[in-house]
């Protein structure tokens, strides 16, 4: 039985490698058909903002890659409602369909997975 994995992405997309590395982990897991989910937390929710233009800072378009997650078998995508509110991000400003979780749901989410990786 494959072990399930929750990837918590909590870094903004265009500075540093963390956001890219988090995505690479789930893409690799998808190749192995692992049951996976991804949670966007803290600055990680900035990865979800629509209409970003990473070419302006010579970066590859991570947000386009994120759109492929479901094809890679990452069926469950979540974001922390608290993180969105703290950053003034509205749900309809997001470029990726995610389910918003409140604090109690966040706690319960971790318990459903065999492994958790926070980047």
């Amino acid at each position: 039985m494959a072990r399930s994995l929750l990837l918590i992405a909590r870094q903004a997309p265009w500075s540093g490698l963390a956001a890219r590395e988090a995505l690479d982990i789930v893409l690799a897991g998808g190749a192995f058909d692992l049951p996976m989910a991804m949670l966007f937390l803290d600055d990680g929710v900035f990865q979800l903002a629509a209409a970003q233009q990473p070419a302006a800072v010579q970066q590859k378009d991570l947000t386009a890659n994120l759109q492929a997650l479901q094809l890679f078998g990452v069926e469950e995508l979540y974001a922390a409602g608290r993180s969105l509110r703290e950053r003034g991000l509205a749900e309809d400003a997001l470029g990726l369909p995610v389910r918003l979780l409140d604090d109690a749901e966040l706690t319960a989410l971790l318990d459903r997975f065999d492994e958790v990786i926070t980047l």
Binding site: A18, L110, F113, D114, E115, V116, I117, T118, L119
Partner: peptide, 8 residues
């Protein structure tokens, strides 16, 4: 514990 979550 059931799992370890390192906040990297």
């Amino acid at each position: 514990f059931d799992r370890v979550n390192s906040w990297l």
